[in-house]
C-alpha cells in the first residue's frame, strides 16, 4: 500500500531538533502528476534511444518506481548515538 504519512525526527550534533509528521500522500499526488506530464517525453526518448541506448527499457521506470513507492510502507530507519538521532518511518 502507498504510504500516507512520513514521520521524521533529526537531532543534530549541535542539539538542533527537527521533527516532521508529513502527509506524504501530497508528494505522491504531485509526483504522479509530474510523471504523467513527462510521459510523452519519456516515450520520445525511448523511441529515439531505441537503436543504441536503453530504448523501451526506459518505460520500465514507471512500473519500477511504482513498485518502490507502493512498498515503502513499513520502512523504518532509526540511527542514533549519544548526540545525534535520525529517525524515519513511513506508515
Amino acid at each position: 500500500m502507498l504510504p500516507m504519512m512520513l514521520k521524521m525526527r533529526i537531532v543534530g550534533e549541535s542539539g538542533k531538533r527537527f521533527r516532521l509528521f508529513f502527509p506524504v500522500i501530497l508528494v505522491w499526488i504531485v509526483l504522479f502528476a509530474l510523471l504523467l506530464a513527462i510521459l510523452p517525453l519519456v516515450l520520445l526518448a525511448a523511441i529515439l534511444t531505441c537503436p543504441w541506448g536503453p530504448g523501451f527499457r526506459l518505460l520500465l521506470i514507471y512500473p519500477l518506481l511504482f513498485a518502490v513507492l507502493f512498498n515503502l510502507s513499513g520502512l523504518h530507519i532509526d540511527v542514533q548515538n549519544a548526540r545525534q538521532v535520525v529517525y524515519l518511518k513511513f506508515t
Binding site: 519500477l64 513498485a67 518502490v68 512498498n71 515503502l72 513499513g74 532509526d78 540511527v79 548515538n81
Partner: peptide, 20 residues
Amino acid sequence: TQERVNIRVPYKLIRAGLKW
C-alpha cells in the same frame, strides 16, 4: 560509543529495489 541502529526494510521493497 552509544551508537544504535534499528532498520526495518519491507521484503517487497527489497524485491522492487533489486529490479532497478
